[in-house]
């Protein structure tokens, strides 16, 4: 029926025109759905795509008076400081490893908490703990670092005092690079778990209740219900969040690392990430172009990784892929 219509309308038989006709037909047939997407399309066009040509700034010696596009082109020079320092590998290693741990452990904990909270019957308990778990998300990195310092600093820290009054020996954490991957990961988990749990909790609550009831009737115990119903239902969400996180795997959380570690270079070996390095190198030498160059480099790497990851997911389970 549709094809008939198509044939009647396209009186010219040239294949390109048929294609074109089809396209417009597709548009008109989906116009409501397209219109529903239109605000978002417009939004991203205005706020994300419009500025994109400005990425050109990374290849220029930016002159304020001339504007981005009339500034002299200097090729890869703005990228040079990042590649010539001999530390890029260490920085990439740190950045990526931290992100992998954050993503895997973070999502694992969030799923666990979401499932556990779902088991709780007391509405009061559920609401209160959820609100409490959200609190760390609100505490800015500066205050978090202050809290950590107050807890573990050698001379006056809360833990030091406790350890000393118990006759123990307090380790000097701020001179121990080996301790910081653990501290940073702990802080990150502490900050993000409440927020992330909500995502999975919402996914669980939209599961059809009848499935769980049926399972119960069939005699499935708590572990089995989690294993065979809840976890499979959460899988798409997990996959999508992981895919999303992968795109930013070479981008670090500057605020967290910078505030916790600061200028304490004794710890850099295990805590220096791309962002903190760039901050040190460009501090007091203000340069928009070099900053953009680093961002572009990170985006390109992230993009390549996401394309591969999404391709793999698409091959295995097309419905789970991002696009």
């Amino acid at each position: 029926m549709q094809l008939d219509l198509q044939a009647k309308r396209s009186k010219v038989s040239a294949p390109t025109l048929v294609h074109k006709e089809k396209f417009w037909y597709k548009i008109s047939r989906n116009r409501t759905l397209l219109l529903m997407c239109f605000p978002a399309i417009l939004f991203f066009f205005i706020f994300s795509y419009m500025p994109m040509p400005g990425t050109y700034i990374a290849f220029t010696k930016f002159n304020y008076n001339k504007g981005i596009f009339a500034s002299p082109f200097i090729g890869w020079k703005n990228f040079q400081f990042l590649f010539s320092n001999g530390q890029l590998l260490l920085l990439l290693r740190n950045t990526v490893l931290y992100n992998i741990v954050f993503i895997l452990l973070g999502n694992f904990l969030q799923v666990v908490f979401a499932i556990l909270l779902n088991e709780v019957m007391s509405k009061w308990f559920k609401k209160t703990t959820q609100s409490m778990m959200f609190l760390p998300y609100f505490i800015s990195d500066v205050l978090v670092s202050l809290l950590v310092y107050n807890l573990i600093n050698y001379d006056y820290g809360f833990i030091s005092d406790t350890v000393r009054s118990a006759g123990g020996v307090m380790p000097k954490y701020y001179s121990m690079p080996g301790a910081w991957p653990f501290i940073i990961v702990l802080v990150n988990l502490w900050k993000g778990t409440g927020y992330g749990t909500v995502i999975y909790f919402a996914a669980i609550t939209s599961i059809d209740t009848s499935m769980l009831e049926a399972a119960k009737v069939d005699g499935a115990n708590g572990f089995q219900r989690i294993r065979y119903i809840l976890l499979p239902c959460l899988k798409p969400t997990v996959v999508i969040l992981l895919l999303f996180a992968v795109g930013g795997i070479v981008k670090g959380n500057f605020g967290l690392f910078y505030n916790l570690v600061g200028n304490n270079s004794l710890l850099f070996n295990t805590t220096d990430i791309i962002e903190t390095y760039v901050y040190r190198a460009l501090m007091n030498n203000f340069n928009f172009s070099q900053g953009s160059a680093v961002g572009l480099f990170q985006s390109v790497v992230g993009f390549a990784i996401v394309m591969v990851a999404n391709g793999v997911v698409k091959r295995i389970e097309p419905e789970y892929s991002l696009f």
Partner: peptide, 21 residues
């Protein structure tokens, strides 16, 4: 459209172009 939207999370133009606009 999904790709069109997702792409913006990977590539941001950076501070100056955005601010300028």
């Amino acid at each position: 459209i999904s790709f069109y939207i997702y792409f913006t999370s990977l590539f941001s133009a950076g501070l100056v172009p955005f601010y300028y606009l």
